[in-house]
Nucleic acid binder design. Sequence first.
DNA 1: CTGAAAGCGCTTACAG
DNA 2: CTGAAAGCGCTTACAG
Lengths: 342, 342
Amino acid sequence: MIRKSITMKDIAEKLNISIVTVSKALSDKEGVSEELKEKIKSLATQMGYRFNTVAKSMKDGLSYNIGIVVPERFIGRQQSFYLKFHRHVSQALETYGYYGILQILTPEDEEQLVLPRFYCEKRVDGMIILGQVSKAYIEILQSTDTPVVFLDFYDEHSNVDAVITDSFYAAYELTNYVIRSGNRKLAFVGNIYATSSIQDRFLGYYKSLIEHRIDLDHDYVLSDRDEHGKFIDIELPEIMPEAFVCNCDEVAYNLILKLQKLGYRVPEDVSVVGFDNDIYATISTPQITTVEVDMEEMGRIAIKVLINKINRSTKEYGRLLVKAKLIVRESVKVKRQEKVNN
Amino acid sequence: MIRKSITMKDIAEKLNISIVTVSKALSDKEGVSEELKEKIKSLATQMGYRFNTVAKSMKDGLSYNIGIVVPERFIGRQQSFYLKFHRHVSQALETYGYYGILQILTPEDEEQLVLPRFYCEKRVDGMIILGQVSKAYIEILQSTDTPVVFLDFYDEHSNVDAVITDSFYAAYELTNYVIRSGNRKLAFVGNIYATSSIQDRFLGYYKSLIEHRIDLDHDYVLSDRDEHGKFIDIELPEIMPEAFVCNCDEVAYNLILKLQKLGYRVPEDVSVVGFDNDIYATISTPQITTVEVDMEEMGRIAIKVLINKINRSTKEYGRLLVKAKLIVRESVKVKRQEKVNN
DNA sequence: CTGAAAGCGCTTACAG
DNA sequence: CTGAAAGCGCTTACAG
């Protein structure tokens, strides 16, 4: 194990040629005869040569690493949404020969504006910030000379490059689906003052109503959580709607349980849709029709933008919206088939 | 952004001293006067100097990276157990100034024995293999000159260093808890021919029975899945036991649903315990008493062993067992308090 | 206490 | 086509 690993020099010596030639041959550069190149390559594999990327990094002044920052609070016991995101980001890096390094940002570091260790140690050429961080932290990141892309959130006040899900459009499409299935009395479930994502989803729902000439009924906008984000018991309206458009699957799941306890059948008596396509959508009976964030695509785009910024570091990209996917399951009663697919 | 980042040389020039002195001062080495050292340090922070770890890597011949390999099949849509594990491993690396790089091992690469990219590019000083890989893949990893530690699995036939949960002992303790709560007729739920971990859990259950002088009743060993691992409908025994010890929370969750449908109350009429402490344990009503893998501790130990191997590369550690944690919730009827805590 | 020299493994001009 | 020289940013002996 302590045996020194083999280098280009070793190969050069065996063949009585220069290191330069070995380097050229191994990286398929001009200036070596085909014959010699083949000889070098085969000797290299035979000797078990592995390219030393650290030396290349040294030369290029590039680490070929990307730092991925996830605030700790987004990694609950069950809630590992962002870890899955991290996985897709890592895989997107493959294409570029880059590697991803994960750093969990503690609340203390965020509060005291401590920059990630991989930044301080010049380990990364750029950073992905995965999940909302404070305004002040965004600013200190921006003040850095390192390219940064924000993933799954953005800040209205800062001029940042961010890749986010198009919640608005997804909710619009989801609501369209419910209406086209023959339901016209739709309630929205979610505290629209709680988060901007709930707000966007509500507005998407509203847009669909408008397009279908359905009036917005304020009694049909039901709060699901208090101002601290704690779930509250949902107060059902006097007149039952035909369908509930919930701002997330967990709320849809709980609502279905509640409706069933009250004797309603889902979807026979009333339809319910969710958002996120998380585990609540599948453990529910019936399984919930919902919308799924396209992590893979978002990861891919975020990395593409980031690598571009690293190489040219000029353009501004701003907010990049990624479409979510409609997942049709069994929680919506299809009264008409008309125009369900557009 | 294209502006060159500042180096020790820049600091040295400003102060009209040598790079060597700057290096010594910045890394708190002997051989610089306190006065000069302070001057250097303050100028460094003032100039926004960041240490270049790549250069250090070059010098040391160490990348200060650890590769973490997770087979793709362990990363299901919901099942992100191993991604959470990865997170704990990453955090454990902090202590040593190391970084973790994640690689998802595709079935093809595993089949064709393709080594991880970070190994081929000499990017890592050691590797953690997170989740069972094929015998052949284990062998090719071992043939490598790089230290490897296996996490959450081991192979009986290979002589590897592995950190695993003590399933046997955990099941034993869990069963002890159920018995000490006053239940004596206990069924085990799990196909004991399916996986070695189910087997170990069954044996832990059996050990507890033996110690409490309870005979093993083969009618009380219930299969939960077929030979392909697909869940089957659990066949309840003629005479209902007082408690079911399930090999995992998901099975416990489904069993509780089934029992409730049959009119049994849990835990009033019959107790049920699970294993894993995953989401099924908490979405169930009642919440399930279970046992939790101590990922944090396992990650810490795996990294400690790996770093030791990197630095000395001598000792063999073999199988390292980590205790799981008993999580008491509401799915067990406590008929007696006697000796519940030991 | 201070620093000139050599080296880590590779690549990029530039000569021959 | 082939290779000597210089350099990436730092550290480690070794002199002074």
